[in-house]
């Protein structure tokens, strides 16, 4: 564990707390893409199938937290505050993302096993999971401040992971090409969003 990775994970936690706080305080999930949240839940469930494999207490607790909160957010959006969700704003076709990521995972993976292919699928899917949310923002034209904070925390989390990989490459000879390429694309998507947002 290094500074970049720890800070990145904490930013990731913070992004989820910001989202939960926004929904609970305003009792509304307006401006939030259900499709993006659904994709994140799929990402966590398919990636953490290795939950029984022990790495550290930190690792296990974080995995449980991500799976639980992502499903809880789906519940809030689809059940508790269902009336505040407007599907007509959330029109990105996620079938294509899911299909393309599954296909890529079947072709480009470290080993062709059930758990490994789904792990790879989750890496590819996380890279593009924010697209429905960005698409929604570009349609509605503006984001609530809180939604911007949510996206900022997520973007910081991704940017810090890049620094973490550079750090790990030099300090422990760590390399993970699949994660690096997907992570670079994911960070680029956020950078593009911030660039557009900053210029506005």
């Amino acid at each position: 564990m290094n500074f970049f990775r720890l800070t990145a994970d904490l930013m990731h936690l913070m992004s989820i707390f910001v989202l939960l706080l926004k929904i609970q305080k305003t009792r509304s999930c307006s401006g939030i893409s259900f499709k993006t949240q659904l994709l994140y839940a799929v990402v966590f469930v398919t990636r953490y199938l290795d939950l029984p494999k022990w790495i550290s207490l930190y690792n296990t607790l974080m995995k449980i937290f991500f799976i639980a909160t992502s499903i809880y957010i789906l519940y809030l959006m689809k059940v508790k505050f269902r009336a505040t969700y407007d599907p007509s704003q959330d029109t990105f076709r996620i079938e294509f993302l899911l299909g393309a990521c599954l296909l890529l995972a079947l072709v480009f993976n470290y080993s062709f096993s059930f758990i490994e292919v789904l792990w790879t699928f989750s890496i590819y899917l996380e890279a593009v999971a924010i697209l429905p949310q960005l698409f929604m923002l570009s349609r509605t034209g503006e984001a609530e401040t809180i939604t911007t904070h949510y996206l900022f925390a997520l973007g910081a989390y991704r940017g810090l992971y890049l620094l973490n990989w550079i750090w790990r490459f030099y300090t422990e000879n760590y390399a993970d090409l699949i994660v690096w390429i997907a992570g670079a694309i994911q960070t680029a998507l956020y950078s593009d969003f911030f660039y557009i947002y900053y210029k506005k």
Partner: peptide, 10 residues
């Protein structure tokens, strides 16, 4: 050697 297979990140 690629030790990325350990999947120790989140």
């Amino acid at each position: 050697h690629n030790n990325g297979h350990k999947h120790d990140e989140l």
